[in-house]
Nucleic acid binder design. Structure first.
Lengths: 128, 128
DNA sequence: GCTTGACTTCGAGCGCGCTTTAAGTTGTAC
DNA sequence: GTACAACTTAAAGCGCGCTCGAAGTCAAGC
């Protein structure tokens, strides 16, 4: 996560204005880091920024929004489950295709065998 | 997959110019459909268009490109495996967070119980 | 004959999520 | 004191993958 990305997340309201050192530089607390880690996980699993904004907004409002926030997470979790299935299917498909390529390569290897080059001076110069 | 997307894929070389009916309309053969299905699977698992273009290009060149094509697929499969792990981790994280929200909601339910409204005319009107 | 609708081409437009640029301030090392 | 690096701001730019719009052609149905 680059500094630029952190600025961006702050700009769009994914993170609240964070603490500053005396010189004005940002100082991220452990709580900030935990929240950023969570954001990172959600992004890495394709949650749209908009949805993360909505979640962050509710989070600011406190426990009363628990239900709605839970719903967001449950929906996203269901999405993740679907993604996993798709990925597993693609993985299986690729296993098949890769096996097929290996067969093709084997066929080529048999049809056009690599003839050994005459290796006249082979082993005449010992490795020191 | 919309018609627009099919045109786009043809434009960028992911599919070869496809057969046409007498009126000029495209007719997709079963082979076309199989290829499109494959493209769809790769896209659904985040293979970039560029890489699909490279693969399609090699495919046009025939069996001699088998090795390189296999490498592309193997790399992508490895990427998929990584994605699956990330998704599973996020799924687990969400399970925890969701459980936590349920606890919070339970706490609220106990602290602010919903007082039963007086239900005076309850059951006086039988359901027909 | 005329409308409707599904296709055709080509080019422009767009939403997302950053990413880069430019210009300015501050603290540290030599 | 002065170079340098690391931060600051605000705004503009960009790559990706579509997505849409405009204008035209064709075939079928009323």
């Amino acid at each position: 996560m680059t500094a630029h990305t952190l600025r961006y997340y702050e700009r769009v309201g994914l993170i609240q204005p964070v603490g500053r050192a005396r010189n004005g530089h940002r100082r991220y607390s452990e709580a900030d880091e935990a929240w950023l880690h969570f954001l990172h996980c959600m992004r890495a699993t394709s949650m749209p920024i908009r949805e993360m904004q909505r979640y962050a907004e509710l989070r600011e409002l406190g426990d009363a929004t628990s239900l709605e926030r839970r719903k967001i997470l449950e929906d996203h979790q269901a999405g993740i489950a679907g993604q996993i299935v798709e990925l597993q299917q693609a993985h299986a498909l690729l296993t098949h295709k890769i096996a097929n390529y290996k067969m093709i390569e084997e066929r080529i290897r048999i049809t056009h065998p690599v003839v050994a080059e005459p290796e006249v001076d082979c082993e005449l110069t010992p490795v020191s």
